[in-house]
Amino acid sequence: MNVLISGGCKNGKSYYAQKLARDMAQQQGKPLYYIATMIPRDEEDRARIRRHLAERDGWGFETLEQPVHLTALLEDPSVDRSGVFLLDSVTAIMENEMFQRVETEGASLKGNAGTTIVFDETAPSRVAAEMETFAKATGNTVFVSDGIYGDMGEYSRSTEDYRKALAGADRTLAKACDRVIEITYGMEEIWK
């Protein structure tokens, strides 16, 4: 069963998704994978990752690091594609693929060496297609995304492009998934 989970920030989506994936793996006697999608950029990110790892400790997840190009996991011989996968989150993969960070050596326009963000306009449709391929190939993936569409949306062009892209991926996944669940403060609303 493929499941799409969305909802607001800090509403209990990840916890709900972890329980669901673990139950699915236990019921079917299958390996349980956690697809980690974050690219750590600083100490705050690294601390967040350590906290997430501690939270998943003892749940039986094997962690797969795949912040971009999700379908590469399907080619990995060490990954059992009949297993149960928890992908947390679609949001992070879309960000990683749309806004690629390139390290610059010399001084940038702002006068300091550092990171330039390159916008990949082919990413939105590619990521949505990879998500769909992954769902169909595994048949047992819990996707976690984020509901960021109910406000005024007075954002910069690139943020608005991002919202549109993530919504597109969500809608593609909603079609490909057997269940679509919105989580509000730990409570579920079944959409499909």
Partner: peptide
Amino acid sequence: FGGAYQGK
């Protein structure tokens, strides 16, 4: 009704 980009 629905949020932005929801496919209304």
